Amino acid sequence: MGSTKEPAAVTAQRSPVPPRSDHISVLDGHKLYVWGGCQCVDGQETFLPSNEIWLYDMENGVWSQRHVGGEVPPVLLQTCGAYLQGILYIFGGCDNNDYTNLMYFVDLSDEEYSWGKVTNTVGTIPSPRVRHSCWVYRNRLIYFGGYGCKSVREVNNSKSFMVDEASWATIGSEFFLFWGWNNEVHMFEPESATWTEPQTQSKLLMNHISLISVSLLETSEHQAASLPRGRTLHTLTAISDDTLFLFGGLSNSGEVLSTLWHSADNGRDGDVVVFGGSQTFVFLMDSVAVLKSPSQSHCADVLVFQTQPYSLSR
């Protein structure tokens, strides 16, 4: 006889979820799921466990903790999360040792909450990277950009990679690894486990918004009539076909704009739900390296921004 799996343990928490930044969150109905990230304990940055997911019920304001088994991913920062048909996918990021290009998934609609690792894929897997972005379109996961490393051969064959000349290295039998930024677009189709890299033509210019037409796989440039302050470590959330919600970040002068390294998700009726983040920072060392404050202050606030009038029924 086959063994019967026990449901994942659920622990109700009277105290808030541990404060954190650089985490992944997804919102499904009135449930907010939070995974990973880091927090500052006694002046030391600590990675949060990858074998747990925190769940916030927005209707009653209660946090609970799910312990997740299976092929648990390493603790990761600066990874990228996408939510499709009840499944959370994470791709890339860095652990304690190196950058990765691994993908893991967990079915949040299944109360057994078990991690799996995506293997045996078709096509070329994107190179290891951090600080990339992703979104869901027609049952595909679409990834853009990021900072990572490539070999000499990969750099020579790529027109979408800008080398950070101050950060190349020699590692083992690899002659050279070049670090830098890319404007690559990669698509992953979960049903067939297939990676593709559509060819696009685009110039990434200051004070421009570069639009990618997914259906045509082409890009166009639009000059913004007015621009917010320059920043990084922010979130930009699409709340309609023609409106984006920009929140937080670190300005080009080093000022924290509300919070940074937080997460933002689409809620009901155009709401934007922001969770966590860091509220203090010291300075930027240069255009690449960001130095954190030893007394960095993380938060565990759940903020709901109403962007349009609610219906009478709500």
Rank of each mutant, 00 (worst) to 15 (best):
D286F: 01
T79F: 08
C38V: 07
F105N: 10
H23L: 11
A289E: 09
Q65C: 08
L260Y: 15
V75H: 11
F281R: 01
D301E: 14
T259D: 05
G172A: 14
V163A: 03
S15W: 14
P228Y: 00
G81V: 10
V304G: 07
L211I: 13
V163Q: 05
V136H: 12
W135D: 09
G146F: 05
R129V: 07
G69N: 12
A12E: 14
D301H: 10
D22S: 13
F144M: 14
D164V: 00
D28P: 02
D241M: 00
Y143Q: 02
K292D: 06
K117P: 00
M187Y: 08
S313D: 15
N97K: 15
F178Q: 11
N183C: 04
Y89V: 00
P294N: 01
A193W: 06
M103G: 03
K150Y: 15
F245Y: 13
D301Y: 07
V10A: 06
E52Y: 03
K31S: 09
D241W: 00
K31G: 01
Q13S: 11
M187Q: 12
Y104P: 04
R14P: 01
A224Q: 12
M206F: 12
R314D: 13
A225E: 13
P294D: 02
P74K: 06
I209W: 11
L84N: 07
Q78T: 08
S311L: 13
T243L: 07
F91L: 12
A8L: 07
M285L: 13
S114Q: 15
N51M: 00
G92D: 08
Y113I: 03
V62Q: 15
E154H: 02
L32Y: 02
V152D: 15
E45N: 10
P18M: 02
V155S: 05
C134L: 05
L284K: 13
G29L: 06
N139F: 03
L88C: 09
R140L: 07
R66L: 05
D241V: 00
Q201I: 08
C94Q: 12
L227D: 11
Y147D: 08
H23E: 11
V273A: 10
P49A: 06
E59M: 02
R153K: 15
T4S: 15
G29Y: 10
K203H: 12
H262V: 01
F247E: 03
G29Q: 09
G29E: 07
C80H: 06
N139M: 02
Q223G: 04
F178W: 09
V155M: 04
G93R: 06
Q65A: 02
M58F: 02
G172W: 14
N139P: 01
D107M: 05
A225T: 10
V302F: 05
G146R: 04
S50V: 01
L291T: 10
S287L: 05
Q65N: 04
M162G: 00
R138S: 14
Q78R: 14
A224K: 09
W54G: 03
L77R: 14
V214G: 02
S220I: 04
Q39S: 13
T79S: 14
P126H: 03
P7E: 05
H23P: 13
Q13D: 09
N97I: 09
L291M: 10
I239V: 06
T119H: 08
L257T: 05
E111T: 04
M1I: 10
F47E: 01
A9S: 10
S173N: 14
N182G: 03
P49E: 11
G43M: 03
G123T: 01
S297D: 04
